[in-house]
Nucleic acid binder design. Sequence first.
DNA 1: TTGTAAGCGTTATCAA
DNA 2: TTGATAACGCTTACAA
Lengths: 346, 346
Amino acid sequence: MITQKEIAEMCGVSVSTISNILNGKRKVSEATRQRVLEVVKQTGYQPNYFAQGMRKQKTNIIGIITEDLLQFSSPPIIERIMAYCEDMNYRTILINMRMYDKWKDTWYNDEQKLHSVLKPAIQELLSIKVDGILYVAGHGRTVNCFPDDFEVPAIVVYAYSKSPKFTSVVIDDEKGGYDITQYLISRGHRKIGVVAGTADNLHTQKRILGYQKALYEERIPYNPDWIRYGDWKRNSGYLEAEYLIKEGVTAIFCMNDDMAAGVYDYMYENGIRPGDDISIAGYDNMEISSYLKPALTTNELPFSEIGTKSAELMIKLLNQDKSEKMTADVIKIPCRIIERNSVKNV
Amino acid sequence: MITQKEIAEMCGVSVSTISNILNGKRKVSEATRQRVLEVVKQTGYQPNYFAQGMRKQKTNIIGIITEDLLQFSSPPIIERIMAYCEDMNYRTILINMRMYDKWKDTWYNDEQKLHSVLKPAIQELLSIKVDGILYVAGHGRTVNCFPDDFEVPAIVVYAYSKSPKFTSVVIDDEKGGYDITQYLISRGHRKIGVVAGTADNLHTQKRILGYQKALYEERIPYNPDWIRYGDWKRNSGYLEAEYLIKEGVTAIFCMNDDMAAGVYDYMYENGIRPGDDISIAGYDNMEISSYLKPALTTNELPFSEIGTKSAELMIKLLNQDKSEKMTADVIKIPCRIIERNSVKNV
DNA sequence: TTGTAAGCGTTATCAA
DNA sequence: TTGATAACGCTTACAA
């Protein structure tokens, strides 16, 4: 690994001159500049980030902490964060806490478990002197990741920050629920059942709010019995379909595609044609939604936009004056309806 | 960020004493040891990895370079690498080259494109003084990632290293093709068609070899016309199904689940019952395989094992004597057949 | 048993 | 326009 010292020797100048040239800091004669840059190019010299970071106390590195890399939301979010940072000449460093591997699904609201792995992760990033930290949640909820007096710029991604000191970037679930319901209504449906997620889930709650809002705006009465809570799994779509169909709904809004598939299952088994007889809308735009027959109309999760937006905000945070302290905020990214063939006019 | 110097002051000893205690290097009086460790704990002191790495020229960090984090193979492989390294007290650092984002699918055999991003990535890891590098390919093939005289321990994961100097950890495709064919034969099938991947693909070629071997062992004549090359997409399963079925095969081995789904499509459209009338086996064990009706028997890709094995080899490499130079090798990890309902006895 | 000092590769300050 | 030197936080050889 070639160093500035070696370059200096090869050029017959001092290391500070090399450093100055590389950083464009001071006036240097064009002659030496050329000579040095030539050697730098030839040798393929790369600065040592460790040494740089040590000296400058800032590294141009942005730390990313992910709750779980295997969550389907994580890779696309992280990918876009990395892309944006790369474009802006920042490096990234990723710490994967692997919560699911360690605790299955018992950690969502267990602060103790979370902090037992989060604290070392943060320490590591701090010790490495990252310029900022992005916390990428793997499960949407309100999460307490950073202490209120945290000194490094930090943003919470795909979950709501408990502390109002930190900006969160989240899915706009209320709008998502609203849009889907609105879409169904625009196709003439007025009796719309819902296969919701688990009742304690934030996504579930906000999407229901959106559903209510859309009904309200159209002056359609809201019937709480038509909200059926599932567990996000295919079978709970199957189970709740029966109830809703007996209630006489003309459309069913499922809060994920798997449960929508379960609704299809029930319909096929009972000679009801999805789409033609009863309309169905899903959520997530997972692979399965295009495989279903008829292909499922669903709401696409905006992971890429969430990633890009988060990185963008972080870099903005880093480049602002300390004085003008950007106020923390909750940034909501809308979903996009993917129209396929499971919703028909009534 | 608390440093050794501050700890030293708080304890009234020198920094070298602190360092020695922390690294268990030299004899230190139990009294001071206790005192120091107490303060360390209280302050939550964390060593600065930069400084450590600079001084020691070794960091206990393993670099991971991934061709593309969004490939479905990458996250599970990387997850297991990270898990194993964490267990063995190594940190990891991930560089995502994002090849697909940059060049769609035109980069597989374009060394120029590859090296334009790989070289800086390697430089970065080198400058950071990682102890070793794992190269995680996103597309199975023979790849030229490291120069022959590369000084840092390196392993190629999910692809074959062009240079024999480096160990590769790959899927055992030949065994995979063999196992599936063998399985079909054991169910009484003797006329087995294949919907293969693209002809120039390494996975395709090796799986065909396995197919041939299984036929040969059972003295079943090999009919090259029954190998139909697709493009991995669902529709090519649909297209090739027609030919194979007209040829009178009783079973079809598809080299991925998507193409198997295409075969199902053709069968449904033509009143042929998948499983009952003609048996089907897939490959990959993607989500869709359990959704198909009947659920698809398929070969699971051993990403976790590949990840674990790679990390294991790396750490073994790092801990061996320089002298006994472990010989580079090609480690083949077998797939596992997931039996579902698409294969019936004939 | 403990401390001093040099050095890892940079950058910043100051002097020449 | 350039160079010497100190400092960042840590480890280690050597001295005490």
